[in-house]
């Protein structure tokens, strides 16, 4: 702070990390992975009424290489899980994962032969949203919590569990 006392009012000092995190949290680029009804609520969140752009996260990318927030919203089947894993692997770090709704988080009511009982068996999930489906407010809340994590300098789970998270099996 000493430096600021000696400079003009329009100059602040900070750390590079803080500036980068500030930019990062206000421009999350979501990669939507909507496979079921939860995706409808995700779309509502992005549309004008709930307007996720107020939180800087409206630029939806359907290319994993241009996004840093994976929103898994819906049921993931046995056959779909490798696809989801591949998409997650293609996202550049740092990257965050939101598991939206009961199905993505634990299989929901679909305790059946073909449904993954929670994507966290294969992906490092940063934020779970309960509900069937969760309301748009819940998704906004999850995004805001991720923003808070970024702001505090916390690393996403994916980075902590080392590059070889692929070895985690169900």
């Amino acid at each position: 702070m000493g430096l600021e006392n000696r400079s003009d009012d329009n100059i602040i000092t900070t750390t590079v990390d803080k500036v980068i995190n500030w930019g990062r949290k206000n421009s999350l680029w979501p990669m939507p992975f909507g496979t079921a009804c939860c995706a409808i609520e995700m779309m509502a969140t992005l549309a004008s009424k709930y307007d996720l752009s107020r939180f800087g996260a409206e630029a939806i990318r359907f290319s994993p290489r241009q996004s840093d927030l994976l929103i898994v919203s819906g049921r993931i089947s046995l056959k779909m899980m490798p696809v989801l894993k591949k998409i997650y692997d293609q996202m550049p770090e740092p990257k965050w994962v939101i598991s939206m709704g009961a199905c993505a988080s634990c299989g929901g009511v679909f305790d059946t032969y073909t449904l993954i009982q929670g994507v966290d068996q294969f992906l490092p999930v940063d934020m779970y949203i309960p509900g069937c489906p969760p309301r748009p407010e819940d998704l906004i809340d999850a995004v805001m919590q991720i923003q808070r994590q970024i702001d505090s300098g916390e690393l996403p789970k994916g980075t902590l569990s080392d590059a070889n998270s692929a070895s985690v099996t169900g």
């Binding site: 046995l78 894993k85 059946t112 032969y113 073909t114 993954i116």
Partner: peptide, 12 residues
């Protein structure tokens, strides 16, 4: 209904 263990043994 829950399958014959495919969920546990599927080779992802």
């Amino acid at each position: 209904l829950r399958g014959r263990g495919e969920r546990e043994t599927f080779d992802f």
